[in-house]
Every structure is written in structure tokens, then in C-alpha cells.
């Protein structure tokens, strides 16, 4: 995006979230929206992360706790199913892992450089409950 110099800014500014006219945004999912360049959806905060969440579909029960508590709209849920993580917008806070109720967790934090296949292969086994 072409950036303006300080003297070229308008005193008041208006940014359009979408290109052209839009209707029913409330029922249109991200993949079908005509985002404009000034929508922060087109930007990325992936470089904030030092740890990243890895999703193991095998253990997921689609409870959607991660979806509701994700502060960065980075848990992608479609048709009541959790289908993945939006790595452009995830800041690596780790809330999704904390709220995941399965045993073993279906989301775990790994170092940012970790290979995802390797992370999945070293997934911890089910923990026994201590009474």
C-alpha cells in the first residue's frame, strides 16, 4: 500500500473496510468478503509471535471454547466445526490452549520455528486423572 507523507494527511480521515457496496456482512464469512486494502484483515501480526498454537484435529470435540475466547479472531470455525488457525492474525497469546478442555489438549503451544508435522508427532498422551 502506498503510504502518504505527514503533510498529505487529511484532517479527518475515512477508511473503507470493503471495496464497493456490501450487504449482509453479518452473515458473510471472511472468505467471501470484498476486503479493501485499508481493512486490518489484509495486514498481519504474525511477527509478534514467539510461540504458536498447533491444532491436533484428532482430539478436538468442537466445543468452540477456543473460538469464543480468541481475542484475535484467529480460530476459524465453519458449520460448527473448528477447522484451523489463522496464522496471519494469531499473536500467540495462548488463551485457546488454556481453555481447551480435551485430554490431551487438542491445541498446544510450540516454539514459532517448530515444524508442525514434528509437533503433531510428539503430541503428549492422555493424562491420567490423579485423585
Amino acid at each position: 500500500m502506498q503510504k502518504s507523507g505527514w503533510s498529505e494527511f487529511e484532517i479527518g480521515a475515512m477508511l473503507r473496510s470493503f471495496e464497493g457496496a456490501t450487504n449482509n456482512i453479518a452473515i458473510t464469512h471472511q472468505e467471501d468478503r470484498p476486503y479493501s486494502k485499508s481493512n486490518s484483515f489484509t495486514a498481519s501480526v504474525a511477527d509478534w509471535r514467539i510461540v504458536k498454537p498447533v491444532f491436533n484435529k484428532e482430539y478436538c470435540i468442537d466445543c468452540q471454547f477456543c473460538w469464543i475466547y480468541c481475542p484475535d479472531i484467529s480460530i476459524i470455525s465453519r458449520d460448527k466445526k473448528m477447522i484451523g488457525i489463522d496464522m496471519d492474525h494469531c499473536k500467540g497469546c495462548g488463551i485457546c490452549v488454556e481453555v481447551c478442555p480435551t485430554n490431551p489438549k487438542s491445541l498446544l503451544m510450540f516454539p514459532e520455528q517448530q515444524d508442525e508435522e514434528a509437533a503433531l508427532s510428539e503430541w503428549p498422551a492422555k493424562e491420567k486423572k490423579e485423585n
Binding site: 468442537d62 473460538w67 460448527k80 499473536k91
Partner: peptide
Amino acid sequence: LKEFSTSADRFEGANLLCPG
């Protein structure tokens, strides 16, 4: 919550709020 998760968010990521 499952039904709620079909909502299409009108708030976008890559905002600069702190992680968490």
C-alpha cells in the same frame, strides 16, 4: 456455543491490542 460459532465476526484481526 456451537450455534454461536457460526457467526461471522465484524471485528478483524491484526488490530494492535496486546496478546491476550
